[in-house]
Design a binder for these strands. Structure first.
Lengths: 201, 201
DNA sequence: GCTGATTTTTTCAGGACGCGCAAATATTCT
DNA sequence: AGAATATTTGCGCGTCCTGAAAAAATCAGC
């Protein structure tokens, strides 16, 4: 990777870090883009070359996007063959993989704190999840051989994203056992859905 | 209801209507608050006395909030005793009741059109659904005797809201049979969730 | 229907956001 | 080193959204 690319990533991280830190210190509406840019040693205009809005800098980009290999395996019916269990596997890997939870525990903790303290960020976050949901929906559709815009697949993906949302809200990120805790909650949640809406209840 | 109150509601409707109409005509970013206010014959500042943001005027307030009586009945285990079926009943009544779908078919159709055409509105809409979801979660918790912040109840509510979201996306609002179509889709979606996550599959 | 109290609307000023544009600066390639 | 390319920056601009105080409308009581 060339110098140019490295510098860009550094600036991006600097901006994001400054945005998060300042917002946690003072609150979202007491921090201006100008201050964030100054903190990262770039001009205010440059900030908008990296992020479309102040909120975007706080949420960051892809919250959950599965590894292509995992996605492939899921589509083909793996790894266990049981739908629920494979979905848990896919989602956990999306969270735990590179760029995911385990790699950036500190950032994830901060983001959680931000979402708690700054309600205005919630819609932005939900929008990101919605994008991820669509990808998941097509994966589910492909696994079951349904058309891409299949209603059932979309509902399942929506429920899954809802499970993710409520799970990450509860898992203690700082903890080393967070991944296992998340996996456990996923399973519980899915079983719970099966019981609540299943015939035998 | 006094004159004052009536005028306020009229202004509110005028603003909302103007916002929707102009946005459908020209697109969200080609319409200014000033134009919307002018169309409703009030000052731009008055617009912000009614809506916090331009987007708020387009989405409107409560998308789904169940009637208090229905909510009560659901909490007490009614009307049929079957969880899935009662949930369908509650959600349908939330949509179809006064202030809901059936009462404002034209507006609902327009809002759907807006959400299709203006992606920036989606996060706002999702935020509204999230608020409604919390209310639903506590209702579910109360019905099952769980504590208010019960994980299972929240997951179920989240799945239910996801079902609503995908359902309203598909139901043809103009149609007179929309309510029945929605009820049908709700049932299908819940059964689908039960099968996908249930033990027997 | 007049009067004073309350609520709403309006005017005004101003900070901040976010974007288009063109000049300046930094990196890459040959 | 010099040309080609990509990024940063400064500037201007329109818009959003808010506070405060003046002006207008509505209300309650007589």
């Amino acid at each position: 990777m060339g110098l140019r690319e490295r510098k860009k990533q550094a600036t991006r991280r600097a901006l994001q870090g400054a945005a998060v830190r300042l917002t946690l210190e003072r609150g979202l509406e007491k921090v201006t883009v100008e201050e964030i840019a100054a903190e990262a040693d770039v001009s205010a205009r440059t900030f908008f070359n990296y992020f479309a809005t102040k909120e975007d800098a706080l949420i960051g980009d892809a919250p959950i996007s599965p590894d292509e290999a995992d996605r492939e395996e899921f589509i083909e019916g793996g790894p266990t063959g049981d739908f629920s269990e494979d979905l848990v596997h896919l989602l956990i890997n999306s969270l735990a993989g590179p760029g995911g939870l385990a790699a950036h525990r500190a950032e994830a903790t901060q983001r959680k704190e931000l979402l708690d303290r700054e309600p205005q960020l919630l819609p932005v976050f939900l929008g990101r999840l919605h994008s991820a949901e669509q990808g998941l929906a097509t994966a589910v559709a492909q696994r079951t051989g349904a058309p891409e815009d299949d209603f059932r697949s979309q509902v399942i993906a929506g429920a899954a994203m809802s499970v993710i949302r409520h799970t990450v809200k509860r898992v203690p990120y700082g903890d080393a056992g967070d991944i296992e805790a998340a996996r456990d909650l996923f399973r519980k949640a899915f079983v719970n859905l099966g019981e609540a809406f299943g015939a035998t209840d």
